[in-house]
Design a protein around this nucleic acid. Structure first.
Lengths: 206, 206
DNA sequence: CAAAACAGCGTACACCTGTTCGCTGAATGT
DNA sequence: ACATTCAGCGAACAGGTGTACGCTGTTTTG
């Protein structure tokens, strides 16, 4: 009843996922890693792979999903930390950058497959980024009283900045990462100021 | 004396480059395309490939270089169109977007390999993006009288926005591309306004 | 307790890969 | 005119790839 069988299956499924992440963290793009090697690192026969995933692509999509999920959870935690005092911009970006540092392999997959490979891959990545934008947009409307339109423009801009900054962190050491983090904070503030100025501009016109 | 031999060599070298670009425009990432297939499409024997490139990587780096070079030339042309009247932001971004539409394959390579594969690849891509930033930065300092510091922050931000927007154009039709272009223009204006506000803020402090 | 389900294995197959090696014939240099 | 250079070729090799098939031994179900 405990499902000792299902439990074991889940375990090797995770082993496959971990194996794929490890191989990814090297220098190989996802498309250039092979079913056999992943299976080998997971400690199972190549043919057993098919008991868990139809394809390598199906595994890849799972990775993308998991990465996005983890990121969202983390940012939701950060949101709580903000409510008990702290700059929204600083806390969010520091959290984000820490996430990238901890999950370099999968985040790299995210960005890499964003502009490559199969359509389904790209759609999955876009979906994750859209989640990020939507949450930010809602915040700007509800807490900062921006128009929906201006909030949309702003959140899209910030998402572009932040995800690009994430990509800049891949090769660098911790010291450089902090520099990038500070720069990103300044850039997001630049956008926030621009949005504020635009809001005032629009008010004056009406 | 005409170099009929060298001319033929250059011709098949271009054939190889074109073949690689074609295969790239499909759905395969660069890392997943093979020397043999590229040679086949170029119409030469696999072994003859080595007369032109040591590696597939060497071919890839050539592609990155060519893409960056073409982009820079195009933007320099755009610069001249601006001097004879026209919004700097609008003309630049429309030019950029047109470039992406015309060179989707190589631009995709640029962005894809930006966060993947070998170190040398990434450095080459970063170098191209840095060119873009540097030219923009100089413009902001010389023509708009920004501080070097604020110009650097601004150009870096704009580069992130514009290159991300380029990536968004990959799958879409022309209609959607125009929408993205307009959005990008607004976003860059947002940043420009933010920078302007920041400049005034700093002046007041001193 | 017997029967069914099923995760994992090993073998086998056809195919594609990068790269070595020695050859050819035409363009070049002298 | 002869010797040299050298882009391109074909054959061959060792190794990797995805996947089909049928077999196990254990867990689950009835």
């Amino acid at each position: 009843m405990a499902g000792i069988r299902a439990k074991q299956k889940e375990k090797t499924r995770q082993a496959l996922i971990n194996a794929a992440m490890n191989q990814l963290s090297a220098e190989n793009g996802f498309s250039s890693l092979s079913l056999r090697e992943v299976a080998r690192e997971a400690g199972i026969a190549p043919t057993s792979f098919y008991r868990h995933f139809r394809d390598m692509d199906e595994l890849g999509l799972t990775l993308v999903d998991e990465c996005g999920l983890a990121l969202r959870q983390l940012l939701r935690q950060a949101r709580q930390r903000i409510e008990s005092g702290g700059s929204i911009i600083r806390v969010s970006i520091e959290t984000f950058m820490q996430f990238v540092a901890d999950n370099t392999a999968t985040f790299r997959l995210l960005l890499q497959e964003r502009s490559g490979r199969s359509r389904s891959f790209r759609l999955a990545v876009v979906r994750e980024i859209d989640h990020f934008k939507a949450e930010l947009e809602d915040y700007l409307v509800n807490e900062q009283s921006f128009t929906r339109e201006l909030a949309e423009l702003q959140s899209d801009t910030i998402a572009k900045i932040v995800f690009s900054a994430g990509a800049d962190c891949f090769d660098v050491d911790e010291e450089e990462r902090e520099i990038i983090t500070e720069k990103t904070i300044q850039q997001v503030r630049l956008v926030a100021r621009g949005a504020e100025a635009t809001r005032r501009l629009l008010k004056r016109e009406s």
